[in-house]
């Protein structure tokens, strides 16, 4: 798994964002919550959930745009409704495909945001240039937003969040509309934000690969409630009850496969289709053990000793997606059972 970022923050660190039994009632038709969720400083949290599960409602409560019907939401320890300015002083939000006035240019929008942030002095132009360069919009600084492509508007959305050096980034589907190079660039940008500035990232996304590669932890919301909160490994282990190791090698002998099957923790070995004219085989090894990283080195040694050529060995990348789907299924099942009882 590509969790390049530092591990979970210290439990002593205070919560930057805290949902305390927060409920948003939209009338009889729909209720979101009660939501209980703490996000610590330096944490990079992936906020996952199907459409209509309450992700955006939570984000909007966090930003003081809507008030909880009951319970409370605190940002930097303060209520973002009653103490909007102080609670959100270091918080920036990048909405999904934002609605920006089309008559504005990126420079003008960023200048307006700097005014909102009380960013003073002659540094304003320099800050606008810095952020435009950061998101790759320097050449479009004076182009009207109405003439920008979807991807560029998304870049602008991130730019207006990064301006003024915030400490907390709230990102709603930040990679939507971006080309692969843009996604990769932004991933790196958010990593740097987290690593170099100990910044906190709260990212809502449907792209599991992005979450898996960027986030240190996830919170899964379903039908308005947080159904899981923990590290990515925890969500995979608790939901799938296994992890998987993917091996790309020359075809493995039966002896080697038997030895792998016999390893403590290995529960299943699935041999995939041969590729490249039978010179390369992808094998998925299901592991029900805490020590999957140790197993990886044992398995690689075993394959090399068997005389096969080992090209790659890594943890399967789509496990979070599988876990996510399983978790949602499980939650629906639990709900059905509850209803029956």
């Amino acid at each position: 798994m590509g969790n390049d970022l530092s591990s979970s923050p210290s439990p002593l660190a205070s919560a930057v964002i805290s949902f305390q039994d927060a409920v948003k009632n939209y009338g009889r038709a729909k209720t979101i919550g009660p939501v209980n969720l703490d996000v610590k400083k330096g944490e990079v949290l992936g906020f996952l959930g199907p459409n209509g599960s309450g992700k955006t409602t939570c984000i909007r409560m966090m930003l003081g745009l809507i008030r909880p019907s009951t319970g409370k939401v605190l940002v930097n320890g303060l209520n973002p409704i009653s103490n909007h300015v102080n609670s959100l002083r270091n918080v920036a939000y990048s909405p999904e495909l934002p609605n920006i006035q089309t008559f504005l240019t990126p420079s003008e929008l960023l200048s307006l945001v700097l005014h909102e942030l009380h960013f003073s002095g002659s540094d304003r132009q320099a800050e606008v240039r810095r952020v435009l360069e950061l998101v790759g919009l320097t050449n479009y600084a004076d182009t009207k937003v109405g003439k920008l492509s979807k991807g560029m508007v998304q870049r602008l959305s991130v730019a207006q969040a990064l301006i003024g050096s915030p400490e907390v980034l709230v990102l709603d589907e930040p990679m939507i509309g971006l080309d692969p190079a843009g996604s990769s660039h932004f991933r790196e940008l958010f990593r740097q934000f987290s690593k170099e500035h100990n910044g906190t990232v709260f990212m809502s996304s449907h792209i599991m690969g992005e979450v898996e590669s960027l986030c240190t932890s996830v919170a899964l919301i379903h039908n308005g409630r947080i159904v899981f909160r923990g590290t990515i490994n925890e969500v995979i282990r608790n939901t799938l009850e296994f992890t998987a190791i993917v091996v790309e090698s020359s075809p493995l002998s039966e002896v080697a496969l038997s030895k792998i099957r016999a390893l403590d923790g290995v529960s299943e070995v699935q041999i995939g289709q041969a590729k490249n004219g039978n010179t390369l085989t992808e094998t998925e090894i299901i592991v029900r053990s805490e020590q999957s990283s140790e197993l990886r080195s044992i398995i690689s040694q075993l394959i090399v000793n068997s005389g096969a050529k080992l090209y790659t060995i890594k943890q399967a990348e789509n496990l979070l997606e599988r876990a996510y789907i399983e978790a949602l299924k499980g939650n629906d099942g639990k709900k059905r059972e509850d209803n029956l009882q």
Binding site: L88, R89, Y93, I100
Partner: peptide
């Protein structure tokens, strides 16, 4: 467009 402007510390 109000959402973006009012999500700032203003």
């Amino acid at each position: 467009t109000a959402e973006l402007l009012l999500s700032k510390p203003v």
